[in-house]
Simulated assay, not measured.
Amino acid sequence: MKKFLLLVHMMVLLLVSPGIIQAEGQKTPGLENASENTADQDPIVFPVVFQRATGDSIISLAADEKGTIIAVTYDYINVTHDFGKTWTTSKTPTSDMYSVMYAQGKFYLSKMHVNKEYEEIPIYVSDNGDQWSILHLTPDGAPAVTIVNVQYVNGTYILIAKQYRTENGSILFTSADGMVWSETANIPSTVYFLTWNGSVYTAYGSGYIFYNKPATFGRNQFLVDSKDKRYAEMIVYSSNNLQDWTMQSGQVKSGMLYKFVVNDIPSTNYYYDVEKYTADGVITLYDYYGNILTSKDGKSFTIQSRRDLFPTNYHRTPTFKAGKNYIIFTQYWHSPGVIRSKALVSTDRAKWKQINLDKNVPNSMDVIQANDNTLVGYGDDGRIAISNNGIDWKKIR
């Protein structure tokens, strides 16, 4: 979650067409004459410079279910197709910083920064990290945007983008195949991810921390930290069709003592992410204060304190499943610059046992799940490790 939020705030930059975003070499029925979006070129192969992995710091990492891991550093793209047994390394297309994301069989690679408001930024898409196609965008007067997230939700690829040089506002793009994209909606707030509960889509911004207790708690307003008396309100939108969105909570209110204000404008500073392995139709989120947030209707949430699932008060991952065990990874400060990891292990998600992980796991390790049998951990020291049970880890980079 921590590295995900870092990427969210750094954000990958691209340009947006008000109509269709299309991969080169692909044609959309009815748009055969839209030549600006259908340039036909051979797939791009980034030349290999090393038949091994580099050891420099990782900016971004993504993995699929089949064994492909892509680790992007400041200058290189490290690719393995066998969970780290062999690697090839290519130079990044330019000297800019790049981010990689994965959603349902597709890897997306793009720059994190834009130098000019109307600069065209190529977005690369690949099935395996070896050959790439360009999502060639025609700005048509639209300002540059940053990619916030790419997801696969309810059978649809969803790309969330943030407009260039604007504090608020998100653009939603959808795709049937992850290659041809259409602009679907504009949401007035910056949102970071979506969920689907079987009948309603929900889009989430972060939220606002404030000090004064409301006379009456409104929708999605909670006491999130009982010790320091911190309250929060979530930013939540809902939709039945991905096109029309209604704000359910998160509007800035007068008379609130917001924790962080810039030029009299409150800034969002309440963060949460989506949990896994939850009951059908129940949306479950977790925050940085040790709370679990749940909703059945995708509009109104309730809160429950679960400090036992957040013992270090620094960072935790969602719940993963490895074999018979459910596992949550947390971090704690060991010494200056050294952030060790712990694992919370359970067979029933009711009783949890805390285990200190081997010191050889990556420093400040974040974890993603590649498939049912493989967890991938990576840290700020450039190391990558894999595990099939969450307890025993093997270094692969």
Rank of each mutant, 00 (worst) to 15 (best):
K3Y: 14
L7T: 07
L13R: 02
L14I: 06
S17M: 04
Q22C: 14
K27N: 13
E32F: 07
E32L: 04
T38Q: 13
D40Q: 15
V48T: 15
G55L: 01
D56A: 07
D56R: 03
S60G: 10
A63Y: 02
I70W: 01
D75M: 00
S99Y: 05
Y102F: 15
Q104N: 15
Q104G: 08
G105C: 02
F107K: 12
S110H: 10
M112T: 11
E117C: 01
E119N: 04
E119K: 00
E120I: 12
S126C: 14
D130E: 15
S133A: 12
L137Y: 09
A142N: 15
Q151C: 09
N154F: 03
G155H: 14
I158Q: 11
I160G: 04
R165F: 07
E167G: 10
E167S: 08
G169Q: 10
S170Y: 00
I171E: 07
A185L: 07
S189I: 00
T190Y: 08
Y192T: 01
W196K: 09
V200P: 12
T202G: 02
N212V: 07
P214C: 13
Q221G: 08
F222V: 03
K227P: 07
D228C: 01
Y237G: 12
Q243Y: 06
S249C: 09
Q251E: 15
G255N: 06
K259Q: 07
F260R: 15
V261K: 05
P266S: 06
Y271S: 06
K276E: 07
D280N: 08
G281V: 00
L285Q: 08
Y288K: 05
I292T: 05
K299P: 03
I303A: 08
R306N: 15
F310D: 07
N313P: 00
F329S: 11
F329V: 11
I339G: 03
D348Y: 13
R349N: 09
W352G: 10
N356C: 03
N356D: 15
V361R: 10
Q369K: 13
A370M: 12
V376N: 03
G377A: 09
G377W: 06
Y378G: 14
D380T: 00
K394Y: 03
I396G: 02
